[in-house]
Amino acid sequence: MPIHVKGASTWGVSTAVWVKDAGVWKPAQSVFIRNAGAWALGYKAEVVYTITSNTAQANAQSFFSAADWANQYLAKKLIIAPGVNV
C-alpha cells in the first residue's frame, strides 16, 4: 500500500518513510495505519538484490544477511535482470 503525502498542494506517492526518534530522523521499517478500528500494515521497508549475470546456482537466502531475514517487517526483493539466466 503506497503512502501519499501532500506537498505544495499536490499529492504524491512517498518512496520512503522517516520517523523522528529521540530527536534523530531514521528510516521507518514499517508503518501501521488504523482503518475502521483495525490496525493494518501500511508500509514495509525493503531490501533489494539484483542478479545481473548468468548463474547456474542461486540460493535466495544467501543474497540477504541474517539481520535481514530476522526482521519480519523488512521485505526482501530479488530481481533478475532482463536477459539473465538463473
Rank of each mutant, 00 (worst) to 15 (best):
A16M: 08
M1K: 13
Q72E: 14
I3N: 02
A45G: 03
I79Y: 12
A16R: 12
T52Q: 10
G83K: 10
Y49P: 00
N71F: 06
A70V: 07
S53H: 08
P2N: 11
A45P: 01
S65I: 07
N54S: 12
Q29H: 08
A22E: 10
P82A: 15
H4P: 00
K26Y: 04
V13I: 11
V19Q: 05
A56E: 12
L41W: 02
Q61I: 15
L78K: 06
A56H: 04
N54Q: 08
W11Q: 03
V13L: 07
K44W: 06
D21Y: 09
A60R: 13
A28V: 06
Q57D: 13
M1A: 12
A56S: 15
A38G: 00
S62L: 13
I51V: 15
Q29P: 00
W11T: 05
K44D: 06
I79N: 11
V47I: 03
F64S: 05
K76C: 03
G7K: 12
G37V: 05
V48F: 01
Y43T: 06
V13S: 02
N35W: 08
L78I: 13
S30R: 11
G7S: 10
Y43R: 07
K6V: 11
N35T: 10
I51Y: 01
T15Y: 02
L74S: 02
N54I: 06
K6A: 07
W39V: 04
S65V: 05
F64E: 05
L74Q: 15
P82D: 14
A38Q: 13
A16G: 01
Q57A: 12
D21M: 08
L78N: 03
G23E: 03
I33F: 14
A75E: 14
V47R: 10
G37F: 07
K44C: 04
